[in-house]
């Protein structure tokens, strides 16, 4: 690995200053993607800014009615070990539990998963489906954008020089949600395809549904699921949701699977995830 310097600022201001002074600087949370990329020579920062000592980035705070504030550096294990968060967002706790193995979850953060902007990121489709927003701060102040608009290309996100992700805000949920991915192993694997789904029900029908997909486009993508609103909860609706997902997917063929297979998986996973989210929505009532 090439030489770099290391700083561990205690507050956001110092972090933004360091990131602004060093245009190639990278923030370090869990490092489970960053250090691998640096070893492979894919990123060559001259400065690593360790953001784990900044209080705001370590916040994990759930407020019924307001939602969840998930600091960008909060490691996965803290999410599933927090009973209030796990109760309010079981799908999020589950995602935190499938990113890497136990050791990875001791370090990796959802914020890092988002910033890394991999098409295959497991948390992003769920965050999109949950309507999450990203709180960003930088030299020209603070801004908030939808997670759905955060990733712009493989490994590229909207952050401008000097900007860092502070937290992810997830609104309160009224229904159910689920992320399902397909991997050839049972753990420690990259999604061949993934589907994040949230749903609210009204009088036994779907009130609204959101669907987002992983690993089938240069970024995680949102599927237009508006046509599902008002649809009855039955197999035809589930099948239709799957078809919408398959139609929206733009997969490529690579070592993880062929394009046709991935499109097929989108339909299967979306259908299964929606069924599971509906069951969760019914249960939460």
């Amino acid at each position: 690995m090439k030489w770099f310097d290391y700083q561990a600022p205690r507050n956001i201001g110092e972090a933004v200053e360091a990131m602004t002074l060093h245009p190639t600087a990278r923030p370090l949370a869990g490092g489970t993607d960053l250090l691998v990329q640096m070893r492979a020579g894919r990123r060559t920062p001259d400065l690593i800014v360790d953001i784990k000592k900044i209080p705001e980035l370590n916040q994990l705070h759930f407020e019924p009615g307001l939602g969840l504030t998930l600091g960008a550096a909060v490691p996965c294990y803290r999410i599933y070990n927090d009973s209030a968060v796990s109760r309010a967002y079981p799908s999020l706790a589950e995602v935190a539990n499938i990113i890497g193995g136990t050791q990875i979850q001791g370090r990796a953060s959802i914020g890092g998963n988002l910033c890394n902007a991999a098409p295959s990121a497991d948390s992003i489709p769920l965050l999109i489906a949950l309507g999450a927003t990203a709180r960003i701060t930088g030299p020209s102040g603070e801004r908030t954008i939808d997670v759905a608009a955060f990733c712009t290309a493989p490994g590229v996100n909207v952050l401008q020089p000097g900007e860092i992700l502070v937290s992810i805000q997830i609104p309160p949920t009224a229904g159910g949600a689920r992320y399902l991915r397909f991997i050839p192993r049972n753990e420690m694997d990259i999604a061949v395809a993934g589907a994040g789904v949230s749903v609210t029900l009204s009088n036994g029908n779907i009130q609204s549904a959101k669907i987002a997909l992983a690993s089938v486009a240069p970024t995680p993508i949102t599927v237009d699921a508006s046509s599902l609103s008002g649809a009855p909860v039955n197999d035809d609706t589930l099948k239709k949701a799957g078809e919408l997902a398959a139609a929206a997917a733009k997969p490529i063929t690579d070592m993880r699977g062929t394009a046709d297979y991935r499109r097929h998986l989108c339909a299967v996973l979306t259908r299964r995830a929606l069924a599971s989210a509906i069951a969760a929505a019914k249960e939460s009532k």
Binding site: Y6, G31, I48, Q103, R107
Partner: peptide, 14 residues
């Protein structure tokens, strides 16, 4: 917490 020490910088052990 268990971690893979290859993905932790030595300086983070401070």
């Amino acid at each position: 917490r268990i971690v893979t020490s290859c993905l932790v910088l030595g300086v983070e052990a401070e």
